[in-house]
Simulated scan of single mutants.
Amino acid sequence: MSFPYLRPRRLRKNKYLRDLVAETRISPRDFIYPIFVKEGISEPEEIDAMPGQYRWPLEKVHEIVGKALDVGVHNILIFGIPSEKDELGSSAYSSDGIVQKAVRKIRKEFGNEVVIHTDVCLCHYTSHGHCGLLTKKCRDGFCEHVVDNDPTLELLAKVAVSHAEAGADVVAPSSMMDGMVRAIREALDRAGFTDVAIMSYAAKYASAFYGPFRAAADNAPAHGDRRTYQMDPRNGEEALKEVNLDIEEGADILMVKPALSYLDVIKRVKDTFPYYPLAAYNVSGEYSMVKFAARNGLVDEKKIILEILHSIRRAGADIVITYHAIEASEWLKEGLDIDLF
């Protein structure tokens, strides 16, 4: 008997054999594709900070949805960019808001061929750029504006119901307000939308990886930051607490955001709560780093994107929200995942 007896290389000698024994697989069915819809424009605007991504006018949003469907991506996540903002973010819950109009248009165009997820937050719609209502609090002569949690819940519930009325299948609260899932679930049920699911941004970190998104959506805070309500990047155990709370409040799908710097959190959440669908958001900064590195010839774009998406799935995510969804699906359709690995 020759040594070594076990030779793992035996299963690596041919690309089709490697594919046969691969532990992790990705498919267009695993992806949710984020789409920006903007009021007041007539043509798509390329986002400088996110090469290959666009702000879509309402009249043409069906074009990008159709492109996603053509490659097998049937799940989309809608973000609205309004033409006007105010302190209450009132256009977020208006029946004539940009998200509501986009949902109705997409539903009319594609029926049930597309699953429409909508981002439920106020930061795109408030003049101050925060994810909730601001209130002035003073102590010992020092005053500051802080996000007032409980009154914000009422508005988030209104946003979610307005999205459901427009035809959304899944609402995705992203503000990280305490109690947001329960407030939304109760409001949806009262309004008769018991079949509308909630995909909660359960563990959303106060990350530096959101920079390109904030440029795309014009939603950076006018003052201060979001560290008082988004999670501290140094914490892992806290993510399990946040996820557990959202489960108790009625979340149907959980989410960890961002993905790449938090693969350990994805794994811990999946190991702790294995029976709940888990999404991971491959965010704008992660996307843009790859795109700019590829533009400068520093990385093999296709290889690195597919490697990233496999790593997110390998960590335990059942669903990947990614700006790479369409291009990756095209490559998968062509069988490039086999050729690249």
Rank of each mutant, 00 (worst) to 15 (best):
K267Y: 10
D337M: 00
E84I: 10
I326L: 14
D140Y: 14
V161D: 07
D30L: 02
V159Q: 10
H74G: 12
I81S: 06
A187F: 04
S127W: 03
R25Y: 12
A280Q: 10
A206S: 15
D70E: 15
E45S: 01
K136Q: 09
R139M: 11
S2P: 12
G285A: 03
G297R: 04
K15Y: 12
V196T: 15
L77Q: 11
H128S: 11
V37Q: 07
A187M: 03
E113F: 06
D225T: 07
Y229F: 14
A239K: 01
M289Y: 02
G72T: 03
G97V: 11
D140K: 12
I321N: 01
E330A: 11
H117L: 15
R234C: 12
E87N: 05
H74V: 04
L133V: 13
A259G: 08
L245R: 15
V61C: 09
R7W: 00
H62L: 00
Y93E: 01
I64N: 01
V159N: 10
G80E: 09
A222R: 14
M231S: 08
I266D: 05
A166N: 04
A317M: 09
S94F: 10
I41R: 07
H163T: 00
S175L: 02
M199I: 00
I184Q: 08
G211I: 00
A280G: 10
L336D: 08
A166D: 05
K38F: 11
G236E: 09
P221M: 02
D318W: 02
S329V: 07
E63A: 09
G179M: 08
I321G: 10
A22K: 15
K137E: 15
H145K: 13
H117M: 14
E327N: 14
I266A: 08
F142H: 08
V73N: 06
E249I: 06
E248C: 04
E301M: 08
F213W: 06
S261K: 00
S261V: 06
V290E: 02
L122Y: 11
E23C: 00
E45P: 02
A317R: 01
R139K: 13
R234H: 11
P274A: 03
A222F: 07
V21G: 02
A317K: 01
V21F: 15
E109A: 13
E84V: 14
N296D: 11
G211M: 06
